[in-house]
Each structure stands twice: as structure tokens, then as C-alpha cells.
Amino acid sequence: MNEQPQSDVSYRDSVGVVTLRGEVDIVQAHDLRERLVKAIRNEDLGLVVDLTDATYIDSVGVSLLFELAERLAERQLRLAVVLPEVGLVSRVLRIVNLKSVAEVHGTVNDAVAAIHD
């Protein structure tokens, strides 16, 4: 539970890929929100949020993803989230039904490919 939140942004074939590590929660939400919003480029097809190495997400972190999905939808952009099969983060995102606003994939490659489809 000591991980500092870390995020990287890269771009693959007109898709932004944001990797979030550590805790995505009420304490970090403000900073993360800014980084996520800045990662969206108008010329892109969509955004992938990679939560493979995220260890914790609370309702504020969840809301951040829902807000992101909404903003992307307004621009006709797609959101895909990469999740491991088990673990707290996956459990949480199942409970809140993230699938209703974003595609969920197991790897970044699958997520990027899905946005291109």
C-alpha cells in the first residue's frame, strides 16, 4: 500500500495509452484527472487506460474513469480499460459495471486493436 501513484502516457497508432500504477484514489484523483485529460489529443481515435499495475481504486478513482468516458464520448472517441483478471481493482470495476461505458481488455495490444476496429 505504499506505492506512489505513477502515470506514463504514450501514443500508438493514433491511440493514447495511459498507464496508471499504484493507488488511484481520493488522495491522488486531482493530479491524475489532470494527466488523463491532458493525454487526450483531438486527432486520436481513442484512449486506453492500463490498470494492470494499479493496486487500489476507490469510488473517486472510479468516477474519474466514468467522467473520462463521458468526455471521450462527447468527442466521438472510445475508451478502453486494461485490467488483470483478478484482484481488487477488477472486482471494484465489475461492481460498478465499468463495461457500461468502456471496453475492458486483458492486454494493451488487444485494447489498441479494439479501438482501431
Binding site: D58, S59, V60, V62, S63, F66, R91, V92, I95, V96
Partner: peptide, 15 residues
């Protein structure tokens, strides 16, 4: 206030 608190309760109930 705001929608994420509703999700807070949802999470508590789910966990």
C-alpha cells in the same frame, strides 16, 4: 453531492 458518492455506497455493498 455528486454522483461518485452513490458509487461509494454501491462499492460498500459490493465488498
Amino acid at each position: 453531492r455528486g454522483v461518485h458518492r452513490g458509487r461509494g455506497l454501491l462499492l460498500m455493498e459490493g465488498l
